[in-house]
């Protein structure tokens, strides 16, 4: 497997006090859309900054496309398009001037730079704002410009830190669609704590907690980690009927049922039982009774459950960590 990013025992300790990244080993396959997931303060941004050479590792090493990262690794940064969280942009410039400056920093010749800037501004929907100064831009517009800025040099690797932070639903949808589109030709690393974003766009995932990488693998691997298969049934009928149904379902081997909020029933299937078989039995009981089924939800969200489970396991391991 060809790797876009590889870290070995990467560690970052701030002022001998705060461990931001703790002995992290990470491999990001080339061409993947990799979600770097973790709660606030998990070390996601620090990891990205270490890859960019904006910070120096306390120990360990990081490589991008086989080249070592560091403050003077210009060749590494020429392969990366970085989008920081809520990018801090020069307010006195206009979008074209800003992108032109970044194009020059990437040593793009004039004849390549200008058409690319126009194409990018069109792609991120900022053509109508080219005569405005950046300081007048909304958060969404700044993020769009930040996205365009990360694509100016057409790099093969994109590191996007919280790309949907502070965006309205349509801007968020646009960003997620764009990541999906870019993922067809580039390696994209998206650092976020928003699980639904990861669920929609990523094919690989790394979960960070307190500076450590507690899981890295494909999305399928992640979902397979769920110990339990849960369903939520939304029913129509009286409360006694639902309680009675819960008792009937709980009598089936390998299935557990609990009353949920409102008229819902949470059905939990044991690991060694077939999901489809168990569900068929449950549906048969409902059909035989006098309740009607409104909807079935496959738990809350498989990724969310798996993620929370990972965090809980990591907390519970204590010293073993």
């Amino acid at each position: 497997m060809e790797l876009a990013i590889r870290t070995e025992h990467l560690t970052k300790i701030y002022s001998e006090r705060l461990i931001a990244v703790n002995d992290m080993n990470l491999e990001v396959p080339r061409g993947s859309v990799f979600g770097l997931l973790g709660p606030n303060g998990a070390g996601k941004t620090t990891t990205l900054r270490l890859l960019l050479g904006l910070q120096r590792p306390t120990a360990g090493r990081a490589e991008v496309f086989g080249k070592s990262c560091g403050p003077n690794a210009v060749a590494v940064r020429s392969q990366i398009g970085y989008l920081p969280t809520n990018p801090n942009l020069p307010g006195n410039l206009r979008p074209i001037e800003y992108l032109d400056l970044l194009g020059k920093l990437s040593r793009l010749p004039h004849q390549t730079r200008k058409p690319r800037i126009s194409a990018l501004l069109r792609a991120v929907g900022l053509l109508g704002a080219t005569d405005q100064r950046i300081q007048t831009f909304s958060t969404g517009m700044c993020t769009r410009l930040g996205i365009a800025a990360s694509l100016v040099a057409d790099p093969p690797l994109l590191l996007w830190d919280e790309p949907t932070a502070g965006l309205d639903p349509s801007a968020r949808r646009f960003t997620l669609d764009l990541i999906r589109e870019l993922g067809k030709t580039k390696t994209v690393v998206v650092a976020t704590h928003i699980l639904t974003d990861i669920d929609q766009i990523c094919d690989h995932l790394g979960v960070m907690h307190e500076g450590r990488m507690i899981f890295a693998g494909t999305m399928q691997d992640m979902k397979r980690r769920l110990r339990r298969d849960d369903f939520t049934l939304e029913l129509d009928g009286d409360a006694d009927g639902i309680r009675h149904l819960a008792g009937d379902i709980a009598n089936i081997e390998g299935i557990d049922a609990h009353l949920g909020t409102g008229q819902t029933l949470l059905v939990r299937i044991a690991d060694d039982h077939s999901r489809s078989g168990a569900l068929a039995e449950v549906l048969k009981i409902i059909d035989d009774g006098n309740l009607s089924l409104h909807a079935i939800y496959s738990s809350r969200n498989a990724t969310e459950n798996a993620y929370l489970q990972l965090l809980q396991e990591d907390e519970a391991h204590g010293f073993d960590r």
Partner: peptide
Amino acid sequence: AEALADGILSRPVGRC
């Protein structure tokens, strides 16, 4: 320094 890191030094530019 922050704006600098976000805007310029995350590009292919040497610190020197």
